[in-house]
Computed example of a mutant assay.
Amino acid sequence: MIPLVDIRPWRTGSSTDSTATAREVDDALRTSGFMMLTGHGVSASLGDDIRSAARRFFALPHETKARYAAPVYGRGWVGQGRETNSFYGESTDNTPTDLKESYTIGRPLRTGNQDIDREWFAENIWPAEVPELQPLCERYAADMHALYLDLLRICAAALNLPTDWFVTRSLASPHTFNINRYPPLTATGTPAPGQYRIAPHTDWGILTLLDRQPGYGGLEVQMADDTWVPAPYLDGALTINIGDLLARWTGDRWRSTRHRVLPPQDEAPDEDLVSLIMFCETDVDTVVTPIPGVGHAKYPPVRSADYLLERGSAATVA
């Protein structure tokens, strides 16, 4: 299943405690690719405040939200029908689009390289109708980025690498912060065959940090035997999983696991959920190739930016 990991011993304990935490993370990412994380220090009330502000934005008329429209992987509002996250290589022109809408925010960083900054660190767009959203999201994203760097240190220790091994390759990395709204059945109507709030997929990058709400139409994870199980929920815990690039880096020692968000269910026709998701990456010019002696799989080198852009294009509905 999905293990529960408390990282407080890493932050406050002895070297023995830190080693034990790193071992727990390694076990979780080898067997599941997912973990439930406690001791992370990110305020739950801050997430609640973001959800409240985001709901005010999502409740605006379509024509108002359209002023902030953005492409997948852009900055701003991605309306329902713009994205399909079917497993890479399996989607077709007939694949139903995902039953969600999103507000997308990026990392406010300037690297000094104009091409990189234009592509990966574009200015965020903030809705004038909900001014409180910007300071809430900026604080939350900063806290989650600090957590990401700590998780990278734990991941390095879990692989017997220097603790700054991943961090030094991710100091100028982008991230994508999605506020995903999953509308209720009363708004979407009956889903098409094979349609989901988010279709079965793997994530693309390094680590995904998810603050989610439980529900009938919630997160499911595919196990090693190909069965699908509901992801456990623990109030205050974050759901963490790795993406394709980290799986490649570790030669598949760690699993980039397929997961999905179920469509709205008849049992809860008014269920309206909001998830806060941080997709964390390495530097865009980092060439990812399997670390010697870590895993078993052989992958050709791939530049992080090239892989992410290819996946983003595949998920976009024209």
Rank of each mutant, 00 (worst) to 15 (best):
Y233K: 13
G243H: 10
P232H: 06
A224T: 10
D235G: 01
A231Y: 05
Y233N: 12
I240V: 15
I240Q: 13
D252W: 05
Q222S: 05
R253S: 13
R260I: 09
G236S: 04
V229S: 12
D235T: 11
A231H: 02
A231I: 03
D252Y: 04
P263Q: 04
P230L: 05
D244A: 13
R255P: 00
S256M: 07
W249F: 08
P263G: 05
R253L: 15
Q222I: 01
W254C: 08
I242T: 01
V221Y: 12
R258G: 09
D244I: 03
P232V: 03
G236P: 11
T257F: 04
L246C: 11
D252H: 05
R260F: 06
V261W: 09
E220D: 14
W254N: 11
V221N: 06
T257Q: 13
G217E: 04
G217T: 07
E220C: 07
R253C: 09
G243W: 06
P263K: 01
G218I: 01
G251T: 02
L246T: 07
L234Y: 12
W254V: 04
R255V: 15
L219I: 15
I240W: 11
I240R: 14
M223F: 03
L245I: 02
A224S: 10
G236N: 07
T239H: 02
H259D: 12
V261K: 08
R255H: 08
G251D: 02
A237S: 09
P230I: 03
V261N: 08
V229M: 08
L245T: 08
L238W: 13
S256R: 10
E220A: 02
L262V: 12
Y233L: 05
P232Q: 10
V221A: 14
T250C: 07
Y216G: 13
R253V: 03
L234T: 15
I240Y: 06
P230R: 15
P232D: 07
H259V: 10
L262W: 04
G217R: 04
T239M: 15
D225N: 08
G236C: 10
I242L: 15
T250M: 03
L219H: 08
G251W: 07
A231S: 10
W254I: 09
D244S: 09
W249V: 00
L262N: 11
G218T: 12
L246E: 01
D252G: 00
T239C: 15
L246H: 13
D244Y: 12
A247R: 14
G217M: 06
A224L: 07
L262A: 13
L238S: 11
A231V: 03
E220R: 13
D244T: 11
P230F: 07
S256I: 11
V229Q: 14
R255C: 01
R258K: 15
R248C: 07
Q222T: 00
G217V: 09
L234G: 09
L219V: 15
I242P: 00
I240T: 06
S256H: 10
Q222K: 13
G251N: 01
